[in-house]
């Protein structure tokens, strides 16, 4: 006979596979990652950006210490009323064992970014070399359409810059200066944020996104934005 605890564990597994516990649609268990991160067919085999920057977030390792938020704010001069990255809290009272988890969010650097389409003056654009969704602060007219267009709430109006601001994977402050990691990835004590190049088969992010053992998913895949920020759980010992 199956004990109550075993039954619950089994149900939890079922929920995890269907993505309910993951808070998003799973990719690798159903081998659908191509559909999600590629906006056109050739992306599947040939990444358009070299390097193709992306981030994998190990959701189960985040402890909400918020050092990433602080490091981001200090590195990128983010005002106290705004954020480029934050940590959301999920509380599931019915869950067996651990009932709380934390979900770090930031700009998903979409391959099909709604903000870029919506901006009337090309103040926000997809960088042709590395795929990062960038801001040209001088052009921003402050109509806030990009803020409305973003399915991830990744943008805010920065009064100091007098333009919309967003995460750019620390490109201007770190990556373009030779640093290998974004400020948030570098400071994280739990190794939650794995930053890398999705076009490089030797890079860890490539291996994580292309393996089938543990689930990898993106947020809101139904809007068709093809994000470059991936989420995973239980990665230890796999890649």
């Amino acid at each position: 006979m199956i004990s109550e605890l075993e039954r619950r564990e089994f149900l939890k597994l079922g929920l995890a596979i269907t993505g309910v516990f993951a808070g998003g649609t799973l990719l690798s268990v159903v081998s659908q990652f191509d559909r999600v991160f590629a906006s056109i067919d050739e992306y599947k085999h040939n990444y358009p950006y070299k390097p193709h920057y992306c981030m994998v977030i190990q959701q189960d390792r985040c402890i909400d210490c918020e050092r990433c938020k602080k490091a981001c704010a200090e590195t990128n001069h983010v005002p106290e009323y705004g954020y480029r990255t934050t940590i959301l809290e999920r509380y599931v009272p019915d869950a067996v064992g651990q009932k709380r988890e934390f979900i770090p969010v930031l700009c998903m650097q979409c391959n099909n970014p709604p903000c870029v389409r919506a901006c009337p003056v090309k103040a926000t654009y997809k960088d042709k070399n590395n795929g990062i969704v960038m801001m040209n602060y001088d052009k921003c007219i402050g109509c806030k359409t990009c803020i409305s267009a973003c399915p991830y709430n990744a943008r805010y109006f920065d009064e100091e810059r007098h333009a919309v601001d967003k995460c750019n994977f620390c490109f201007d402050t770190r990556i373009s200066k030779g640093e290998k990691l974004t400020a948030c990835a570098a400071i994280c004590p739990a190794g939650v944020r794995i930053f890398g190049d999705l076009s490089n088969p030797d890079d860890r992010v490539f291996k994580i996104v292309h393996q089938l053992q543990v689930p990898v998913w993106v947020l809101r895949p139904e809007v068709g934005t093809k994000p470059n920020v991936f989420y995973t759980k239980g990665l230890k010992g796999v890649v």
Partner: peptide
């Protein structure tokens, strides 16, 4: 927020996919 910039960049940096 920057209506005067709008007058300039609407002309010199138009985004034809933007409904705005």
């Amino acid at each position: 927020e920057n209506p005067f910039r709008m007058a300039i960049y609407n002309i010199i940096s138009p985004n034809f996919t933007s409904n705005i």
